[in-house]
């Protein structure tokens, strides 16, 4: 029993080390003057500053895209989740399944599909909204499911019926009852959307243009062509953005689950 437990702990710790060690290396490399010579060469923020001057455009583009993606997925996802939750059944499941297809099909295939259909529309192809479409496609299922899960957990039907008996029409019921009670799901879904959008690479790499590089595209760029310290510093900047988001997302998701157990 004891030995079994010790083995389990060892394996868990090894897995943690496997995941954590390279992230620490990258953080250190990003603030080390010369990675070859090690930490003894001194700590510096000059690589981070260089990253900022080289890639701040990519960083702001990613933040802008993520926020736009949040707005679009909320506007599309919340009403749709409501409509699907109101009529649970085969039809709703088929719709949910179809919308979730981008989770099952590799991003590369989706990007090729988008490129083949819209690649020749130059105005659209070269616009940031083309990348946004890809991000919405990929993140929408998360918003839809997060809101659907909350709406399925509350007694939506009787809440709506009671609002109706008090004189509220469909639109008022949606605004006064459905949306406020779906908020934990919207929050969890929204944080997931932003986190995934900022980190999205598979679709974006195919959809981007030389003038529209998102943060992960810039990362790939720096890994291929910059010295290790700059690549690491850029990765460090990415961690600083993504880790708090990831933690907030996990907090919001478990909160939404707890609230409606």
């Amino acid at each position: 029993m004891r030995i079994a437990k010790a083995l389990q702990l060892t394996l868990t710790l090894l897995a943690c080390a496997f995941l954590l060690v390279p992230t620490i290396q990258s953080v250190l490399a990003g603030v080390t003057a010369n990675y070859f010579r090690g930490l003894s060469s001194g700590l510096t923020l000059k690589w981070v500053a260089e990253v900022w001057s080289l890639y701040s455009g990519s960083i702001f583009l990613s933040i802008g895209l993520a926020l736009a993606c949040l707005v679009v997925t909320t506007l599309i996802g919340v009403p749709a989740a409501y409509a699907l939750a109101r009529r649970p059944g085969r039809g709703s499941r088929v719709i949910e399944e179809f919308v979730s297809l981008p989770l099952a099909i590799p991003g590369l295939a989706l990007a090729l599909a988008l490129l083949q259909l819209y690649g020749s529309l130059q105005g659209f192809r070269a616009h940031w909204s083309f990348i946004l479409v890809g991000h919405v496609l990929y993140t929408l299922p998360f918003m839809l499911r997060a809101v659907l899960a909350v709406l399925a957990a509350i007694d939506l039907r009787s809440l709506e019926e009671s609002a109706a008996t008090l004189g509220a029409g469909p639109w008022r019921r949606f605004i006064d009852v459905v949306v406020p009670n779906a908020l934990p799901g919207v929050l969890a879904g929204g944080l997931t959307v932003v986190t995934l959008s900022i980190g999205e690479f598979n679709l974006t790499w195919m959809l981007h243009t030389p003038f529209l590089k998102t943060l992960p595209v810039g990362l790939a760029d720096s890994y291929a062509s910059m010295r290790l310290e700059i690549a690491s510093a850029y990765t460090l900047v990415f961690f600083v953005m993504i880790v708090p988001l990831l933690m907030a997302m996990q907090w919001a998701s478990s909160r939404a689950q707890r609230m409606f157990r």
Binding site: D155, S158, E161, A164, T165, L166, G167, A168, P180
Partner: peptide, 20 residues
């Protein structure tokens, strides 16, 4: 007449109070 225009009052089995 749709429910919202009937001017009725209803108490539901599980009360259906608005938690928000």
């Amino acid at each position: 007449l749709p429910v919202e225009r009937r001017k009725i009052g209803m108490v539901f089995q599980n009360y259906a109070l608005f938690p928000n």
